[in-house]
């Protein structure tokens, strides 16, 4: 019960950090970074805490975590790709954009 509560607390702290990251980051791609990683680990810890501390449904929670692990990066990848195809600008602190360079030089690819 106590361990579950602690895990849930840490998980929700990571979720809070993710939300803070989305507020503070300068452009859509950096926000995606904060959003994806923090929510994935946050949800994993949160669900694990619920699973071992409260409902005793560890296996169902394991399946949930697996689905989150597979789908969360996929959706953020799709969003980032769509954003780049729509030519949403990167922040002016950006160092390099290989994808834009390659799109400009080689039209035939992919």
């Amino acid at each position: 019960m106590l361990a579950g509560s602690i895990l849930t607390l840490i998980g929700s702290l990571f979720l809070l950090l993710g939300a803070l990251g989305i507020l503070r980051m300068p452009d859509v791609y950096n926000r995606m970074q904060a959003g994806t990683k923090a929510t994935t680990l946050g949800s994993i810890l949160f669900l694990t805490g619920i699973g071992i501390g409260y409902c005793g449904c560890v296996w169902k929670v394991t399946i949930l975590i697996l689905f989150i692990l597979f789908t969360n990066p996929l959706s953020s990848h799709a969003l980032a790709r769509a954003a780049h195809h729509m030519k949403i600008a990167l922040t002016n602190r950006t160092v390099i954009d290989r994808l834009r360079e390659d799109e400009a030089t080689e039209e035939d690819k992919c």
Partner: peptide, 19 residues
């Protein structure tokens, strides 16, 4: 997560992003 958390929490926002 620790990496992103430290970047988010530090006041100067130490990032130099790129693709």
């Amino acid at each position: 997560n620790l990496d992103v958390a430290s970047r988010v929490l530090s006041p100067s926002l130490p990032i130099s992003p790129g693709i």
